[in-house]
Structures are given as structure tokens and as C-alpha cells.
Design a binder for these strands. Structure first.
Length: 492
RNA sequence: CGGGAUGUAGCGCAGUCUGGUAGCGUACACGGCUGGGGGUCGUGUGGUCGCAGGUUCAAAUCCUGUCAUCCCGACCA
């Protein structure tokens, strides 16, 4: 393993890949396009899960679990959804292997064990869930039905990247059923807000809330609400989506309820999800050339102690002192690690925790014992200072909050500096090509224009922002009238 | 699927052109000196050279086939 990472400026993509592997978050597996999430990376996911799960429950949702497999006949019921995903589905056709008579010691698929009906490995669970909901919903009294599931899904991507796009990934998917259109829309918008709050408060990743254009909308949805984040290399990342599904799935799966007037109606639906892709976004929002930078609220280890000593006697003295602080931090719910390994020198440990993004590092040596001091280093600014031990716990507790805020503020400033208003197509191309980030431009609202712009610049409409200002303007490409600006960017 | 490249120790690589005892760095194990930013010295473990076949006295090296992976495209909520 080489000692330093590729610099972001040299090759951003290479930097990202190296960082994920060296920080011990994940690695490529024996299965093409699928990753192994290692304990440190999984710990971040668990922290994300815990918070999101809490937020879902607070907004009235319950968890359940549905099957991995979807019979093809169910999968194809909602046409647009099926069509949208058909190209990237893994399909189970057989249920048994047998010894291969031509190749001793090898197995082959038993040709006799062909399934009557193929099973699609879920790329998303609307189909299996809505076929189930049919049996759960009869009356308006059964509504709203507010369910979330934590699961894995498979999408056979041509090209994969750790966390950002893998063939199998972990996510949560909420699937709700409502009596009215307005209630369903409110639900979809509420979840968009939940995602935005999570991204900003916990990931310290600023996002823009908006709605997708027709061509970027989820297959089978009436509207897709999105949160869009901006990465350090100027590319946008779709960080979460919440869909208003109208009555499309209710019709496809014949899910009706009896309303208060005794009349049958189709239910209104939403679905919403975020995935392990968020970890990719987290990395590309904050990390630097020294490694990962984690916001304290999601860091598996928030504080690490590194002892500096000569000989075992000194280590014993230091350990005793450090253990009292470790206990004090734990009482406050701060996750702390004491690294007393004798196999590495302090400098190597410093580098390791920088690579792994631990927000606060505390070094304590014999000199500190004499002076009642410690050296506190923060990962976000890479600054260090020597402070008195007297207020260590309070100091670090405050510092963690400061780091969380600072990471968000820095990311917000970067993001805001990379939203550029343009009024001509030359300007548009120049900004996309040279500056990157979001370009706020007028658009005539047609798919043709969107497609042409994509061909020419590789930029797509990331969203029509919720807070877009109504203003008369002309499409940056066709010159046709437009009432508000939309955001374009190159995207992951 | 089109174009390019690569498979040799856990990881990163040299050796292949010109066939002749399997190498280096790192990691790992043990010991000494060390210890406030990636230490040092010594000893040691670890490889059917992707797989199959062929040529040869002899193949990591040459030939044929095959599999896999990576990169650039196409694809992608």
C-alpha cells in the first residue's frame, strides 16, 4: 500500500476509489459489480440507518419486509415501471444445480429444474408490495398505509463504482397508500423534506430540493421529488428521491378502497428511497487529499486517543489517565477509541486516523501528564492545539458540534459558489465545461431541448427547484419563453 | 456489445522481447534499539506465475484457445 492518496486535482475518480479502499470502507468483491462493505463502512451505514429509521417512525411509518423475488407476471403489471427497469434485471430461471457429467467435480444448472415462471430479482419493490397491498386495503379506515422496508436491490449496471453505483446495493424504500391525491402528494413532499433534513443536519451535505423533469422521472411516477447535492469535482449527485405515484400502481394491481360514501376508489401511492450511495456522497462532499473527513454525527469513532510514551511504565501511567477520559466521553454518548497498540508509532496512527476521517484526535504524552495538558487535533481543519485537561470533555464535546457546523458551512459555501446563472448557450457550455457545478438557466420545458443539451454538453436537468423564482425569460437553447430557471449539471 | 490494457506472494509491481534455480517493495511473524507526524537493524513465513492444451531436453517467458478483471465508449432514476 502506497503511503499517500492520489491527489484530487490529479485524478478525482482515482482519488475516490483509493480513498474508499484505503479508509477501509469497502472493496470490490468476487462478484462483478458488487461490493463488500467492510466493518468501518458498514458502521457509517448503520449510523445513517439509525437516524433515518428514527425519522421515518417519527413521521408515522412502520417497517416490514417483502420478498427479494418478484414473479415476472407481477413485475410487468405496471408497464412504465417494468419498461424502465427491464434492461437491468437479474432473472432467476432455475432452482437447482446438479453434478456435471461432462466435468467431474463441477456443477451445472439442472435443465429439468426450469421455473414455470421466471423470478425477477427486485430492482425496486413496487410490484411485489402493491400486489400485497391489494389484500391489506379494503376501506378508507385502512388508510393511510405507511410502510418502509430496509432491503437490498439489484440493478444490472453496465459500469459500477463503489457506493455510487453497484449492481447490488442496500437502501430503504418507503411505500405508502392514501385515500386522496393531495394526501399522497403531501406525503411524498414530506419525505423529500425528511431526506433533506437528514442530508443537511447529519451528513452536513447541503442539498437542493426540486422536482424532476419528465425524462428524469422515476418509471411509473407522476412526479419525482429529489434532493440534489454537489460534489467537489463539480458533478451533481442525486442523493434521494420521493415519488408521487398517482394511481398507477393501484390500477395495475387493482387496489381499491371503499370511501366514506361507500364508493370504490383506487388508492393514491408514494414511494421514496435512499441508498448506500449516500456514503459516496458523504465522501465526495467533505474528504480531502489526506483521506476521509466524517461529520461527527455519522462518524463511527468520534474521538481517538493516541498515547505517546517511552517504555511500558509511561504507557501504564498514560493509560490510567486516558481511561478516565474515555469513560467520561462514553457517559456523554461520544464514541471514543483508545489506541494503545504498541506496534505503530504515533505518527503512523495520526496518519491512519486522518485517512479514516475521525473528527477529533487527542494525543497525550508524558509531557502532557506533567503539564496537565493534551494536544487536540481536528480533522476538518487539520489544526492542533494544546489545551488544559481541566475542561477536556466539555471542550471536545463543543468541538464536535463546531466541526459538524463547519463542515456544513464549507460545503454550503462551495455549493453556492457553484450555482451559476447563465443566459446564453455559449455561457452555458463554458460554465459546464470549465467551472462545473449547477447552471441555472431558462428552459422551454420540452424533452427535445433537454435531450439536445445533453448531447452537446453531457449536462442534464437535475431538478426544477422547489423555490425557483417566477421570472420571465427565454430558453437558453431555443429562445422560447420560460417562466423559471431550472438547474443543469453533469451528474454521477 | 465496440476500442484498449492487465492477470506473477495478502497488496503493489519487476522478470516475458532474447526459454535455463521465482525476484523486489510493502504487509505479516519473532527479537533488539526506538517512540511529540507515516522509525530502524536483523531473522523468518508466504508463489501449482489466471486456466487448458501445444512446441521444447527445458516454459512465467514461445504458440493456440479460454476465463476473469480494469480503463474509454454505448447504458444508467
Amino acid at each position: 500500500m502506497s503511503k499517500s492518496l492520489t491527489k484530487r486535482e490529479e485524478d478525482y475518480s482515482k482519488w475516490y476509489n483509493e480513498l474508499v479502499v484505503k479508509a477501509d470502507l469497502a472493496e470490490n468483491s468476487a462478484v462483478r459489480g458488487c461490493m463488500v462493505i467492510k466493518p468501518y463502512g458498514y458502521a457509517i451505514w448503520e449510523k445513517m440507518q439509525a437516524e433515518l429509521d428514527r425519522m421515518f417512525k417519527e413521521t408515522g411509518h412502520q417497517n416490514a419486509y417483502f420478498p427479494l423475488f418478484v414473479p415476472k407476471s407481477l413485475f410487468e403489471a405496471e408497464e412504465k415501471n417494468a419498461e424502465g427497469f427491464a434492461k437491468e434485471c437479474a432473472v432467476v430461471t432455475h432452482y437447482r444445480l446438479q453434478n456435471d457429467p461432462d466435468n467431474p467435480g463441477k456443477l451445472r444448472v439442472d435443465p429439468e429444474a426450469k421455473l414455470e415462471e421466471e423470478l425477477v430479482v427486485r430492482p425496486t419493490s413496487e410490484a411485489i408490495i402493491w400486489s400485497t397491498y391489494k389484500g391489506w386495503i379494503q376501506s378508507y379506515r385502512d388508510l393511510p398505509l405507511l410502510i418502509n422496508q430496509w432491503a437490498n436491490v439489484v440493478r444490472w449496471e453496465m459500469r459500477t463504482r463503489l457506493f455510487l453505483r453497484t449492481s447490488e446495493f442496500l437502501w430503504q424504500e418507503g411505500h405508502t397508500a392514501h385515500a386522496t391525491k393531495s394526501e399522497a402528494i403531501a406525503e411524498a413532499r414530506q419525505m423529500q423534506q425528511v431526506y433533506a433534513t437528514f442530508a443537511e443536519e447529519f451528513m452536513a451535505m447541503p442539498v437542493i430540493k426540486g422536482v424532476k423533469s419528465d425524462s428524469e422521472r422515476f418509471a411509473g411516477a407522476e412526479d419525482t421529488y429529489t434532493i440534489e447535492a454537489l460534489m467537489q469535482d463539480g458533478k451533481a449527485l442525486q442523493a434521494g428521491t420521493s415519488h408521487f405515484l398517482g394511481q398507477n400502481f393501484a390500477q395495475a394491481f387493482d387496489v381499491k378502497f371503499t370511501n366514506k360514501e361507500g364508493k370504490q376508489e383506487y388508492v393514491w401511492a408514494t414511494s421514496w428511497g435512499v441508498s448506500t450511495r449516500l456514503i459516496g456522497g458523504l465522501i465526495m462532499t467533505h474528504s480531502d487529499d489526506f483521506g476521509l473527513v466524517l461529520p461527527p454525527k455519522l462518524a463511527p469513532i468520534q474521538v481517538v486517543f493516541v498515547p505517546i510514551y517511552k517504555g511500558e511504565d509511561q504507557l501504564l501511567l498514560l493509560s490510567e489517565k486516558i481511561q478516565t477520559y474515555v469513560q467520561a466521553f462514553k457517559k456523554l454518548g461520544i464514541s471514543v477509541k483508545y489506541d494503545d497498540r504498541d506496534t505503530l508509532r504515533p505518527g503512523a496512527k495520526f496518519a491512519e486516523y486522518e485517512l479514516k476521517g475521525v473528527p477529533v484526535r487527542i494525543a497525550m504524552g508524558s509531557r502532557d501528564l506533567e503539564n496537565n495538558t493534551v494536544e487536540v487535533a481536528r480533522r476538518d481543519t487539520l489544526s492542533k492545539e494544546s489545551i488544559s485537561q481541566d475542561n477536556l470533555v466539555e471542550y471536545v464535546s463543543d468541538l464536535l458540534e463546531k466541526i459538524q457546523v463547519n463542515l456544513f458551512d464549507s460545503a454550503l459555501q462551495f455549493r453556492n459558489n457553484h450555482i451559476t446563472l447563465v443566459n446564453s448557450f455559449d455561457e452555458f457550455k463554458d460554465v459546464i465545461e470549465n467551472k462545473g457545478g449547477f447552471v441555472a438557466a431558462h428552459w422551454d420545458g420540452t424533452e427535445e431541448t433537454e435531450e439536445k443539451i445533453k448531447e452537446l454538453t453531457k449536462a442534464t436537468i437535475r431538478c426544477i427547484p422547489n423555490d425557483a423564482i417566477e421570472e420571465a425569460g427565454n430558453c437558453v437553447f431555443t429562445g422560447k419563453p420560460s417562466s423559471k430557471r431550472v438547474l443543469f449539471a453533469k451528474a454521477y
